[in-house]
C-alpha cells in the first residue's frame, strides 16, 4: 500500500505542523487518511466531518493551499510520497487542529431578507413555472461548506471587511431571494444599497472552488451588481424615470 506523507496543523494559533506517514488504499480520499491518522497515531486530532459524501459541507480544509472538501479529494491526485499539507480554513478563527469557528456565517445569514410570498387566488395554490425557477434552483445546491467564503480575498486578506461584506455564500442566498418569481416585495432597493456588493471585485475564486459547481460570480454576484446598476446608474432608466416617473 502507498504511504501518504502528511503535514497536518496541530493545536491552536500557537500550534505548528506535525509530520505523519499514513498508509492508504485504492480509491481513498483525504478524509479517509485523516481518519486512519486519528485511529492509529493522533487520537486527539480534531476534525469536523459528517456525511463523507460531499453533501454536508463539514470537512472543509485547505489541502496543499487549495480550499476544498476532504471527503471529495481523492488521494490519487497526489504523487506517491508527495508532501500533503492539510490546514484549517484560514479565514476563520481557529478552534483546534482542523476545526474552525464558522459561526460568523450564521450572523451573516440573519442579515439576508426573506421572500414575501404572494397570496394565491382564492381556492388556488401558489404556482411557479419551471422556467421561472430554473435559475434559482442552481442556488439551492449550496451545501454551506463555506469554502467560497474562505477563499474570498475580501475577508481572507482583509478581516476588517467582515462586518461590511456578506460574502459569496450569502450573495447566493440573496440572489435566491432577489430573483424569486413570487416575491411580492422585490428586494431591488435593498440590493442597490446593502450587503457590501461593491467590495467584490469579481476575481471568481468563489466559483473556482465551489464543490457544487455553482456559478457564484456569473449567476449570483454579477446579476446582483447589475440590479444595482439598474437602480442607480443605468442612463436609459434614469431618462425613463425622469420622463415617466416610473420606479
Amino acid at each position: 500500500m502507498p504511504t501518504a506523507n502528511l503535514k497536518v496543523w496541530r493545536g491552536d494559533d500557537s500550534g505548528d505542523y506535525q509530520n505523519y506517514q499514513v498508509e492508504y488504499g485504492h480509491g481513498e480520499v483525504v478524509l479517509d487518511v485523516i481518519h486512519k491518522l486519528q485511529a492509529t497515531q493522533a487520537g486527539d486530532l480534531a476534525v469536523r466531518w459528517n456525511c463523507k459524501a460531499g453533501k454536508c459541507g463539514s470537512c472543509s480544509a485547505e489541502i496543499n493551499g487549495h480550499p476544498r472538501l476532504q471527503c471529495m479529494t481523492r488521494m490519487e491526485i497526489f504523487e506517491e510520497g508527495e508532501e500533503i499539507v492539510i490546514a484549517p480554513l484560514k479565514t476563520y478563527k481557529l478552534i483546534r487542529d482542523l476545526v474552525t469557528d464558522v459561526s460568523v456565517n450564521f450572523e451573516k445569514a440573519k442579515t439576508i431578507p426573506f421572500v414575501d410570498l404572494e397570496k394565491p387566488a382564492p381556492g388556488d395554490v401558489r404556482r411557479m413555472a419551471q422556467m421561472d425557477i430554473d435559475r434559482v434552483q442552481e442556488f439551492h445546491k449550496c451545501i454551506e461548506c463555506f469554502i467560497c467564503m474562505d477563499v474570498c480575498h475580501v475577508i481572507r486578506d482583509h478581516p476588517d471587511n467582515m462586518d461590511k461584506f456578506v460574502g459569496p455564500r450569502y450573495f447566493v442566498q440573496l440572489a435566491m431571494v432577489a430573483m424569486h418569481p413570487l416575491d411580492q416585495h422585490p428586494k431591488r432597493e435593498m440590493v442597490a444599497y446593502g450587503f457590501g456588493l461593491e467590495y467584490c471585485n469579481i476575481t471568481k475564486c468563489c466559483t473556482e472552488v465551489c464543490p457544487e459547481g455553482i456559478h457564484i460570480t456569473d449567476n449570483a454576484i454579477i446579476p446582483l451588481k447589475e440590479r444595482r446598476v439598474d437602480e442607480l446608474y443605468d442612463p436609459l432608466r434614469m431618462i425613463g424615470r425622469a420622463l415617466f416617473g416610473k420606479k
Binding site: D13, A87, K90, T91, P159
Partner: peptide, 20 residues
C-alpha cells in the same frame, strides 16, 4: 462582529501553500 476572524495562524502561514 469579528475583527479577529483571521487568526494569527494565517499570518504565520505566509503567502500560500499552493504548489501548482
Amino acid at each position: 462582529m469579528v475583527a479577529d476572524a483571521m487568526s494569527a495562524l494565517q499570518r504565520r502561514y505566509g503567502k500560500t501553500h499552493r504548489k501548482d
